[in-house]
Computed example of a mutant assay.
Amino acid sequence: MTVAPDSARQDDFQYRAMRDAVDQLGYGLPGKFEITKEGIVHDMMAPGGPHEVTVSRISRRLEREMPDELLAHTGTPDVEDGPGGIMRHPDVTVIAWDDLGVEGAVDPRAVLAAVEVVSRSNPDNDWVGKVRDYPLIGIPVYAVFDPRTGTGAVFSDIHATPEGPRYATRKDFVYGEDVTVAGWTVSTGGLPRYA
């Protein structure tokens, strides 16, 4: 008689194996590793220049608008939904100080918004993978800034679909316009573009 593991146990086993691999690889290889519904994503390029300037400017502009108990965090830890099999690392995580002060990864249900600046090396990770994964783990607002094109979009209003939760609303913007992220409006003026 053959006994096959149930689907949930198999999914958990696969996620744990990927998580262990990411932990090991993260110490010796450059770039950033994330776990998606599709597997492990490795962004080989270390962000620099326009990417980091955009991350910092968006973080500071958001924090000027937000109450003191919140921050637009740009560092570690990751945002992880172990049972859902997803571990991501937003460029900017809008979260309460109290929810950030935990050991290990942040619970995605504590995140008010995630902001990504599209990388040159793997734009589909931000425009496709994270648009799919962030609503699956309950992040209510996702903003994408794209220095390649000087455009972006804010995704919100998670709703149920046959494929799982998805964002129902997408608001596109062009650099130079004001954009609203989770109720706070910030300028996109002066954001750098990739050469």
Score class of each variant (00 low, 15 high):
residue 1 M to R: 10
residue 2 T to Y: 13
residue 2 T to A: 09
residue 4 A to Q: 15
residue 4 A to S: 13
residue 5 P to S: 05
residue 8 A to W: 12
residue 9 R to M: 10
residue 10 Q to R: 14
residue 11 D to E: 15
residue 12 D to R: 12
residue 14 Q to S: 07
residue 16 R to A: 14
residue 17 A to T: 13
residue 18 M to R: 14
residue 20 D to P: 02
residue 20 D to Q: 09
residue 22 V to K: 03
residue 22 V to P: 06
residue 25 L to E: 13
residue 27 Y to P: 03
residue 29 L to D: 04
residue 30 P to F: 05
residue 30 P to Y: 06
residue 30 P to G: 06
residue 34 E to R: 05
residue 34 E to K: 03
residue 38 E to Y: 10
residue 38 E to H: 12
residue 40 I to M: 08
residue 42 H to W: 15
residue 42 H to A: 06
residue 42 H to V: 13
residue 42 H to N: 09
residue 49 G to Q: 02
residue 51 H to R: 02
residue 51 H to I: 06
residue 52 E to T: 10
residue 55 V to A: 03
residue 56 S to M: 13
residue 58 I to K: 00
residue 58 I to Q: 00
residue 59 S to K: 00
residue 61 R to W: 07
residue 63 E to K: 01
residue 63 E to M: 15
residue 67 P to Q: 07
residue 75 G to A: 08
residue 75 G to S: 09
residue 82 G to P: 06
residue 84 G to M: 06
residue 84 G to T: 08
residue 84 G to D: 12
residue 85 G to S: 06
residue 85 G to T: 07
residue 85 G to W: 03
residue 86 I to Y: 05
residue 88 R to P: 05
residue 88 R to E: 11
residue 89 H to S: 13
residue 94 V to N: 05
residue 97 W to Y: 13
residue 98 D to V: 11
residue 98 D to Q: 13
residue 100 L to N: 04
residue 102 V to I: 14
residue 102 V to Q: 12
residue 103 E to G: 10
residue 103 E to N: 11
residue 104 G to A: 12
residue 104 G to R: 11
residue 104 G to Q: 13
residue 105 A to G: 09
residue 106 V to Q: 04
residue 108 P to V: 13
residue 109 R to D: 12
residue 109 R to K: 14
residue 111 V to K: 05
residue 113 A to N: 07
residue 114 A to G: 15
residue 117 V to G: 09
residue 117 V to N: 10
residue 120 R to P: 01
residue 121 S to L: 07
residue 122 N to W: 09
residue 123 P to G: 10
residue 124 D to P: 01
residue 125 N to K: 08
residue 131 V to G: 04
residue 132 R to Q: 06
residue 132 R to E: 13
residue 134 Y to V: 02
residue 135 P to E: 01
residue 135 P to M: 02
residue 137 I to S: 06
residue 137 I to G: 05
residue 139 I to G: 00
residue 139 I to R: 05
residue 141 V to R: 03
residue 141 V to L: 04
residue 146 D to I: 10
residue 147 P to V: 02
residue 148 R to Q: 14
residue 148 R to G: 14
residue 149 T to E: 15
residue 149 T to Q: 11
residue 150 G to Y: 14
residue 151 T to I: 02
residue 156 S to T: 10
residue 157 D to G: 12
residue 158 I to L: 14
residue 163 E to N: 14
residue 163 E to D: 15
residue 163 E to Q: 11
residue 164 G to D: 14
residue 166 R to M: 08
residue 166 R to C: 04
residue 167 Y to V: 03
residue 169 T to Y: 09
residue 169 T to H: 10
residue 170 R to L: 12
residue 172 D to R: 08
residue 173 F to C: 07
residue 173 F to E: 07
residue 174 V to S: 05
residue 175 Y to I: 02
residue 176 G to K: 04
residue 177 E to W: 06
residue 178 D to V: 05
residue 180 T to K: 06
residue 181 V to W: 08
residue 184 W to H: 15
residue 189 G to K: 11
residue 190 G to Q: 03
residue 191 L to Q: 02
residue 192 P to R: 03
residue 192 P to S: 02
residue 193 R to N: 00
residue 193 R to E: 01
